[in-house]
Write a protein that binds this DNA or RNA. Structure first.
Lengths: 214, 214, 214, 214
DNA sequence: CATGAATGAGGCTTCATTCAT
DNA sequence: CATGAATGAAGCCTCATTCAT
């Protein structure tokens, strides 16, 4: 929790960044404030000029991550009406967010358990809102007869899990471009949603040329 | 870590079970041996009649989980030839394993980072072998023209992530039966793999009746 | 291990002093940090604001003891040329150092085995340098025909052992003055070195008056 | 303490031998019963079929070492009348005992502090008896005008310390024979005692040929 | 704001010792 | 006699947190 009325904005930013990285590496319980302070060029005691407590820091981090994700969703996905284009935008956003902000997202998924009950509920409420957003798209598409799936809720879980998984293995410095990464997942998701349209056909054949990596 | 056939066998089993549960709740760094011992009805120091160290315990647990998963794969999936039936069996196994042994699997995915480099490599080698098994099925199906997917490797990652995610939300005491859970994922996966057959149509319509939870 | 000139300096000095005493009493393995801390008026954990580890503390102590001894040797003994006067000065220094700093010297001789191999080598190198200094005096005296001894190396070992032994039984509050203690050992050492001069005769008779304690 | 009425004499001997070695290496506080048991091919708990306690074992060891030394003194030294020959015999015995039974003697000197007060007194009484024996020889020689020394008590301390020191550096597999080692120390001791006789002259010159190791 | 030092709680681990089998 | 397992006490060390300077 950023303390109110502090100057030293740069120190706070350094703390934020270093904390995300260290938590991603060691987990919340496994990282320690001394190392965090060292990475920021200060001593452990000085951290308390910027944070309330170790757990407060975690809550702040998780909150802002979820808030950012939700805001981007509102800006880029919620404004679209067509289910197919909307799911495409959602896939794009989710993958971009989960690759560009890999470490932040990892702790967002893993470290919830270290929050106090109150904080836990606050953060999971945001997460649920995001998941619900995605489910709505799928339900709407199914209602309009564009998607053909057995269960909107389970399908949304499966899609979110699949897309989130990308953050665990994708590295932007590899041979696979982010653009291509997104294309592939758009197709996979649309296929999973039972969409069979001319575009998919075209993309499918073009795609096949790059396939069979294994 | 422990010789079999002795009287302390029951203690060791209790340790194993309690450790899995506690690690799943608090994470490896967050759980402590005192509580583990208390759950087994012994004192903390006595744990060391059964384990080498806290980390050694983690390694033992993760190793046996992965070994079990691989063994079941060999018995139930590897023996099938037809890609569609094989992927069905793989989905079934993965979901059953990840729901029946929920907590064990969660720590298998989350706590790898707490292992020493040597142990880490040993365990990830097993995990890679499993992932590779799945990828082979998909590649084979693509080569035979049964599956139509952009990239076997990425597709396998996506499918594994989607199926693994089930363990995070599914509860066997809910209204959704395990049988139904598997059916739904079989369909989702087959659709994602670009399989279009008459069975899917039928299942799809039947399925729609149970769907739309949201 | 600790930067000088800070306020905690007094704590560090207290730790040093108490550690020497406790190690002399119980041995390095036998003393514990809780008691050390208690003697310094702090809690055990606070020790780690001043030391790296229990063993690091031992190394620091032994190092500074040997460094002091070597420095005093350089100042008081190395600057003399005449072998007889030099060996007299060496006896005087050794006894003064081993009685004034009794406890420190005891741990210096006894607790080497508790050091890590690296630290062990560092400290024994200093000790060897000191022993070598003494041997050089004896060799020089023998070469100049002043000392008559069978083997310079063994003789130096014997003399060092004899003088070091003083620290084990001498108490400065007894009836034997430090001045007299040194005189006696000067004579014993010179006799052992085969020096026969008129002074010894004189001292010998004077000495006899105080002797025969047993 | 060897438990009464036990068979398994060989196990007890193995314990004794291994204990001496381990204590010499790690000190009494630093060695542990598990390792001791392992060296004897048994488990830690089984040690208690042979000993009363860790400290009881130490007492037994120290006691028997001192008893052996005293017995040998009575047999080999006490029976001589002439002070010079007697001191020669004492030097020989002390060096032989302290080289042949190096490790035992080291723990005899170092680990006394780990005994309970009662045991401590029992063992130091034996040690004092031995030291007193030596002092008597020196006093007698001084009284007879054969030795010329400032103080019999201090001289005996110095000689004992010098001879005991041999155990710390002498290795029987080196180039220095035990016979020669004894000769050198006989000369050193006799010189220190102020003995100037024809024998010393002869030995001295012969000895000079081997000297100047450094 | 930063620091050095202290705290107190707790964590992992070791170890002498006991005892039923 | 030997063993495996348990105990309880203790040991070293870490760490979030506080506070005077």
């Amino acid at each position: 929790m950023r303390k109110a009325g502090t100057r030293g904005e740069t120190t706070w930013l350094a703390i934020r960044e270093a904390a995300v990285e260290l938590i991603a590496i060691h987990g919340f319980e496994g990282f320690n404030l001394r190392e965090l302070a060292a990475r920021c060029g200060i001593k452990a005691g000085s951290l308390y000029n910027h944070i309330d407590s170790k757990e407060g820091l975690l809550k702040t981090l998780l909150e802002s991550i979820m808030a950012d994700l939700l805001r981007e969703f509102d800006e880029q996905v919620a404004v679209i009406d067509d289910p197919i284009e909307q799911i495409r935008a959602a896939v794009r956003l989710h993958i971009l967010f989960h690759t560009r902000r890999r470490t932040e997202v990892i702790i967002g998924n893993t470290e919830l358990r270290s929050l106090s009950p109150a904080s836990y509920q606050a953060i999971t409420a945001l997460r649920d809102r995001y998941e619900n957003n995605l489910r709505q798209i799928i339900s709407k598409g199914a209602a309009r007869g564009v998607f053909h799936i057995p269960d909107a809720k389970i399908t949304s879980f499966a899609i979110i899990a699949a897309l989130t998984g990308v953050g665990h293995w994708y590295r932007s410095n590899g041979s696979l471009s982010q653009k291509r990464l997104i294309e592939i997942h758009e197709q996979l998701v649309l296929q999973a949603l039972g969409v069979v349209d001319e575009t998919a056909e075209a993309t499918g054949s073009e795609v096949t040329r790059h396939a069979a990596t294994s």
